[in-house]
Each structure stands twice: as C-alpha cells, then as structure tokens.
Design a protein around this nucleic acid. Structure first.
Lengths: 354, 354
DNA sequence: TTGTAGGCGTTATCAC
DNA sequence: GTGATAACGCCTACAA
C-alpha cells in the first residue's frame, strides 16, 4: 500500500527549532513580530526538513486553496480544441508566477458543466473559475453569480456585471469585411457559428456592419450558421458556391470553419486566394500549414489565458469584478488565402459548371 | 435553499436530521450499520441542503484528495503541443467516471519539473502523478520512486520498475521502414528526436532494425536528431535532400517534424508522395489537413490518457505498480504523403539542381 | 517577543 | 445503532 511517507508537519519544524508551532506559523506568514534570531533558526529548520504547509489544513483555516478551476468541454470525437490548449498554457504560465495551481475538469453538456462547477464549489476545491466559450445566456455564469463565487469569463454574455476578458469580435469582423472590400470583393459570404454562442452573434453583427458601411445590400442567402467543425464549414462553402450568384469571398467565424471551407473549395478545383478568398478567425498555428496558408484574425489564446488568470487572482483577492473588464482587439494575420477577385460571381459560377 | 454565503457543513445536515454528525458521516461513507429510517432521514437532509463534504477537511482526516496531478512542459513559443491536449482530454474523461479531478501545472525545464512535483507532493495537493514524455533517465521518476509516491508514466525509462503505459515505438518504426521498403524505397532518411528522450531512442532502434532487415546498409548521414518543432523538421529535410545521394523517403519521429519537412520540401518544388515520401508519427488531427494529408502512425493520445489515468487510480488504491505495465501497438494511418519513388536519388538530386 | 489553546470540517474510536 | 469526542495540520486570538 503506497502511503504518504512521513510528511513533515509544522510540529516537526517547531520541535527542531525549539519553539512553539504558533511561532513557526507566524514566521512563515510574515507577521514580522519575531526576533531575527528565532526567525533564522526557524527558517533553517524549515529548509532542513523541506517543510511545506499542507494545502488542506491551510484551506481549512484560511478558506483558500490557491487553486483555480476550469471546466472544459469534453473533447468531441477525439479532436481536442487547439484554441483551448493554448489558452490553458497561458493560464498555467500566469499561475506559475503566483504559486497557484489549476484544476481541470471536463463536461459533456451545458447542464453537466453547471453540475461540475457546483460540485467544485461545494467541495471547496477551487477559489474561483475561469469560464470559456461563453454563451449569450450562460447557465454557468448564472450559477456563479447566484453563488457569489469568484470567476472571470473569457467572452461576455447578455448580462455583463462580472469580470470578463473579451475580444472585440464585432470590430474584428468589421475589419474583415473592410479588408475584402478593399481587395475589390462585393459579394461576401459569412460562415457563422451556433446562434447561442455570444461571440457568433457579435461577429455576425460586425459582418453586417461592414456590409452596410460599404453600401452592399445584405443577402440572407450568404449567411450560414455552422457547427464549429471542419465538416460543417465544408458543407456551408459548397452551398454558397453553388448559389446562382456565388460569393467571391468567405468570412468565417473560426479558423476551423475556414479550413473546412478551403478543403471543400479546393476539391471543387477552385484556387483559394484567387477564385475565392477565405478569411478565418483565431490565428491557430494550424492555419499556417494548410495550403494556402490561411489569412486570419489572431487574438492570442495564450495571452488571453494568462490575462484571465491574473484577473481572476485579483478578483479572488478582493478587487471589484467590475474593475476587471477588458476588451482587446484582434489583429489581421495576412497570409495567402485572400486576394483580389480574379473572377466575377458569374464567371465563378461558369467555371464550376464545366 | 442554498445560501450564497457560509457553505453547508456536516453539522448542518446533522442538525436538520436530528442526529449526531458522526452518524451522518457513517451514512455517507456507507458503513451500513445505520437503521434504514435514520438513513433515509439523513439522505433527505443531505439532498435538501445540497450538502457536499469539504475536500480539505476530508483530506485532513483520510489522507486522500481525489485529485491526480500532471506537470506539463510549458508551451514553447505559443504553440501548445496537440498530443498533450488530446492526452489531457483522455485523462479528464477517465476521471469523470471516478469523481476525481486533475491538477495541471507546467514547468519550463527539467529541474523545474522536479521542483513542481516535489511541491505538489509536499503540499499534498494530489494523490498521484501522470508523467509524460519520459526520458531515458528521468529525474522526475527518480524523485517519485524515492518518495514512494504513486505515479504512472506514459513511456518507459531505463529503469522500468514502476507502472507505465507505452507504445511499442521500436515496432512502429520497424513497420514504417518495412512499409517504405515495400513501396520500393532503398534510400531512407530518419528525422529523429532529442537523444535524451526515450521514445526517440526506441524509434531510432526500430528504424535501424528495419534497414538491417531489408539488407540496407546504415548511413549515419541519413540520420538527424531534431528538436520537436516544425522548424527543426524543415531544416533537417533540407539538409538531407541536398546530400549527394538524397533519400527518397523520410521517416519522422513525430508528425510535427514531418509537417515541417513537408513544408520545406514543397517549397523546393518537390512533390510529396511522388518525389519524396514522408511518414510521420502521432496521428495528429492536423495531419489530415495538410497538403498532402500525412501518412502517419497513430497511437491515440486520447486512449493513452484515459488508460494511464485509470492505471494511476488503481495504483493509488493499492494495486502493485508492476501489475500495471502495458505495451500497445501503433497502427499505420495511410493517407497521401507516401508512394513509390518516381525518381532515383540521382534524378532527385538533378531535379533540385535546376 | 513568544507560548497556549481553540477551532476550521471530517472521519474514526470509543462508549452507551 | 447512535452519540460524544479526539484527532488531522494549520492559523490566530489571547495570555504571558
């Protein structure tokens, strides 16, 4: 039976240093009222025994565990979400600087996610949560607000009275449309996301604003709501390109959709960046390795994770959540999947007919 | 009604049920010596108050936290390792079934990794570790063995007296060489990994065995040790292809290297799968989206994570670690980056000279 | 400046 | 069967 081998307690340290455990505790927590001499003696004992306070005992007394929690969507069909990996890495990096750790759990549905958050709160395993992929009306956030439990959301929701870190989605898609319009496109398709996702709503708004700004009439046929996987993107691209007046540019709500679209269009013999322009969003590393390399908007998942973690730490330490709301811009990463339209929609249509 | 403040304790439940807290505890831990009547009354109170035991207090008494730990390499240069993401997802899935959680930390060097493991052990935040990317001589495993702390390694080391889950790396690379030999290749390059990594050593052994089996003389110039990123793979590919007698097939120790190699070779105007065959290893989803889709060996990182987690749980619960050692096979995932050589090495060389 | 003691929420060992 | 009560390891008033 593997058991925790004789872990050193504060008692051991006290004995070795010849003081009471209370004194050891005070030194370790920087009360500053201990004499330099005993202080040194205690620290030396700590060093020698390699003493570290038990997280559990400490928690019991102080009510903090120095652990942040995150509940991820369980991997759908073996494919881990690359955005989340980078986001996690960013969190871990920020935590490393603050001697805190990250508890990771997964959930396979919205209700399950709420259950898991609740369990973690009640078992007091974490001090706060980072919530990702927020929805317009998010039950997790509802729970957290109701419980008064610290958290930071990556992305806003309808209600916004809490701490969040978000990308200016609307602005990014406005910029995307401006970009393709500047290239000469007038017929611009939009591969959107599930309507319950808040970011999908915001990005669609940006797309429409871009059209309006350029004086292009909005055509509902050019907007498709997709699931967030390649297949869905491929399907949507095929649908759009077979319209009577197909778009010469596709603005996609995520890189994953864009990659699926590119796959499908190439299979139809179209030259990406010349026959059809495709623009993604996320700045995933994968994007650089597909053919042609994907032009996209990048929000640095890594930076987002790191910043969200730090914001959460602040909130846990008592900062007003409303003082921790940050909106950042996504930047265009110009690669090779965009370019001036070499065909009119009509010519595009004809080239497919052959 | 769940109150926002002051979490429910066992005391609250006891009071509501009109019993002593000891009794509540016994019911909750299935001692089975309680009368059916009080049992029901207690469970009802638990339900009503939505009581959940405090993990910290429980830990203090029982010495278990129901939390597994993993220390990941900190993301190098913004690129999260896709293998690890899937591995994590597998762990999470297994844990979901057992009401345990996963504590994730990162380390930016080998020594740091040891420090972090040590800190986690001493602060008793986890019951055991999953160790990934083992090295031939691994300091983390040294520490864990010395401390007598439960762990499972994904990959073996020199010493193998502990629980591990590993892929038969040698066999996979033997198979890889057999595969390209069967296609007609005789000049076969090897993009290896850092020599301290155990899997790199094993894969190289498989490669050499494959050559020997086919009666092909081993040429040291065809073997290159790379770092595990695209750039390194690209560089190695360029070096090999510019040899006097370049290889017509490249067997790569990871998909990441293979992807880098493909990038570089395509940039030189070579047709992958015809001029040069490239084979990877890992079965990363990305591989399916590059051009051409990467032929690779798949070990299902997801399955590995799930299995490793379950093995660790077994070990924590007292199973002899030596009874938890598993070797699995990696299977060839045939896509389109391999094929019969259309050029001899000499012709390949000439086509590059132009 | 330092020692003593009570309590955080559980579980386990006693009595009854 | 069930109720007290003593730990578990730490922090922190309070006393000395």
């Amino acid at each position: 039976m593997p058991r925790t081998k004789g872990s050193v307690t504060i008692e051991d340290v006290a004995r070795l240093a010849g003081v009471a455990k209370g004194t050891v505790s005070r030194v370790l927590n920087n009360y500053g009222d201990t004499s330099a001499e005993t202080r040194d003696r205690i620290l030396q004992a700590v060093e020698r025994l390699e003493y570290q306070p038990s997280a559990a005992a400490r928690k019991l007394k102080r009510g903090r565990v120095d652990t942040l929690g995150i509940v991820l969507p369980a991997g759908q069909g073996e494919h881990a979400d690359p955005f989340l990996s980078e986001f996690l890495d960013g969190i871990a990096q920020a935590l490393d600087l603050s001697d805190r750790d990250l508890l990771v759990t997964t959930a396979h549905s919205d209700e399950h996610a709420v259950t898991v958050h609740d369990r973690l709160i009640r078992s007091r395993k974490v001090d706060g949560f980072i919530v990702t992929r927020t929805q317009g009306d998010d039950p997790r956030i509802g729970l957290l607000l109701q419980r008064g439990f610290p958290f930071v959301a990556h992305g806003r929701t309808k209600e916004t009275d809490f701490a969040w870190y978000d990308v200016d989605n609307e602005r990014a898609f406005l910029d995307a449309v401006r970009h393709v319009v500047a290239l000469g496109h007038r017929r611009i398709g939009f591969l959107g996301g599930p309507v319950r996702m808040n970011f999908a709503i915001q990005r669609k708004a940006g797309y429409r604003r871009g059209l309006a700004e350029a004086g292009i009439a909005h055509d509902p046929a050019l907007e498709i709501a997709c699931e967030l996987n390649e297949m869905s993107g491929a399907e949507a691209a095929r649908t759009l390109v077979h319209l009577d007046e197909p778009p010469t540019a596709l603005v996609c709500v995520t890189d994953t959709l864009a990659i699926g679209a590119i796959e499908a269009l190439r299979a139809l013999g179209l030259a990406i960046g010349r026959d059809v322009t495709v623009i993604g969003y996320d700045g995933l590393p994968v994007g650089a390795y597909i053919d042609p390399p994907l032009t996209t908007f990048s929000q640095s998942a890594h930076a987002a994770g790191a910043r969200a973690a730090q914001m959460l730490i602040d909130v846990i330490e008592g900062v007003d959540p409303l003082e921790r709301q940050e909106l950042v811009r996504a930047d265009l990463v110009k690669r090779a999947s965009d370019g001036p339209p070499e065909k009119t929609p009509k010519e595009l249509k004809e080239s497919l007919a052959r």
